[in-house]
Amino acid sequence: MAKNKVKIAVKDLNLWYGDKHALHGLNIELYKNKITALIGPSGCGKSTFLRCLNRMNDLITSVRVEGEVVIDGKNIYDKDVDEVSVRKRIGMVFQQPNPFPKSIYENVAYAPLKHGIVKKGSGCDELVEQSLRSAGIWNEVKDILKEPGTGLSGGQQQRLCIARTIAVKPDVILMDEPTSALDPISTEKIEALMLELKKEYTIITVTHNMQQAARIADMTAFFHLGDLIEYDETEKIFINPTQKKTEDYITGRFG
């Protein structure tokens, strides 16, 4: 694994929802330009962990976080780090496609305009096109950019959400079960897209679908009840896991 460059280093990460200890001292290094899959039974803390990586948990008032999440050498929980600027660099795609009820164009352009990445009439159209192309949806929507994003099919909406995320030019894209609300054909498209996107971005994805993890992930992390049980190359996890729990889960004995 020497050739893997560490993008995110998580050190002794603990998280509480009020009194509930949801993540127990996690240590993990996530690699640049790889797809890392987080697997594990429902409620084991995959989403919670994912939200730690872009500080979305800050929005939940009862949450308390301890430990470090070092991204490109800087701990994002340091006092001098603003969570809003963290999220500009660490994008997130959700389980339910959630485009804004605005036009397809505005869905993509809104955040870059606010961040000053582009200006109206100077680079904006180009960025929108480029983002939609990268998300593999340009050909389907190029003639209906003025129409509401909410009118697209579920799979198209999800790719629009991915386009919206890349438009902000993040380094890392977090995906929380991005295909679990989609049909198999849309799922296939998103998976192909993820493989394409990892050339430029670091992708961390939660999935309930074991085959999906096996198909697209370079690395896989298995969570159980707030603990990181095992983390290794996907092939290793699926063929030759070292932990009994991992094996039980992968072979479908629980979960």
């Binding site: 929005l59 809003v84 994008g91 809104y110």
Partner: peptide, 27 residues
């Protein structure tokens, strides 16, 4: 206004004011 809209906004690195003013209040 669904929470998913707020999350979408925050995940794009928008500030609270931007999310509330441009996405929540219009809806």
């Amino acid at each position: 206004v669904p929470a998913s809209i707020r999350q979408a906004g925050y995940a794009l690195g928008l500030t609270k004011v931007q999310v509330v003013k441009d996405h929540v209040i219009p809806l």
